[in-house]
């Protein structure tokens, strides 16, 4: 079946199997490699994408379900000022070890910071920890991730 959705700002149309999982469509058909394969059952979060701006696991989503929606991965955020600040903080704070979880954690924390600016989430360490609950980092970078998010929040004085 044919499915069309916005991927990183451009419309894509792909022929997929009705039972095809978004993670597979992104990696195997559309060349999006930042979205990783992990547990494939919603536990680890390395397959996170933003669906209409909200973080979701792409391993528990049929591609058919996202028809006409907007999917964002880190590939689409390279020129976003907020994302650049956040990624820079990740580099500066050594919030990355092996990097396997990093694109997903960047997406989740990016979405969280946007929510803070929209007044929908509080800016606090507890809220950051709660936001990244679904992103497993086997290297244990969590404290550094939290620090990078705190710094990004405090550096930004104007809304993104």
């Amino acid at each position: 079946m044919r499915v069309s959705f916005r991927l990183n700002g451009s419309w894509v149309s792909v022929d997929v199997e009705p039972g095809e999982i978004l993670l597979d469509t992104l990696r195997l058909r559309l060349g999006i490699r930042s979205v990783k394969r992990g547990c494939e059952r919603g536990e680890c979060g390395v397959c996170t994408v933003l669906l209409n701006g909200e973080p979701v696991v792409s391993c528990l989503l049929l591609t058919a379900q996202v028809d006409s929606m907007e999917v964002t991965t880190v590939e689409g955020l390279g020129s976003d000022p907020l994302f650049k600040d956040l990624a820079e903080e990740f580099a500066r704070r050594f919030s990355i070890q092996c990097g396997y979880c990093t694109p997903a954690i960047l997406l989740t924390t990016y979405a969280y910071i946007r929510k803070v600016y929209e007044g929908k989430r509080k800016a606090s360490v507890e809220e950051i920890v709660k936001a990244i609950e679904g992103n497993l980092c086997r290297c244990g970078t969590y404290p550094r991730v939290v620090r990078a998010v705190v710094n990004t929040l405090s550096r930004l004085t104007t809304a993104p």
Partner: peptide, 9 residues
Amino acid sequence: MGSWQIRNL
């Protein structure tokens, strides 16, 4: 329940 990514679905 679940995580943010799960609750969004």
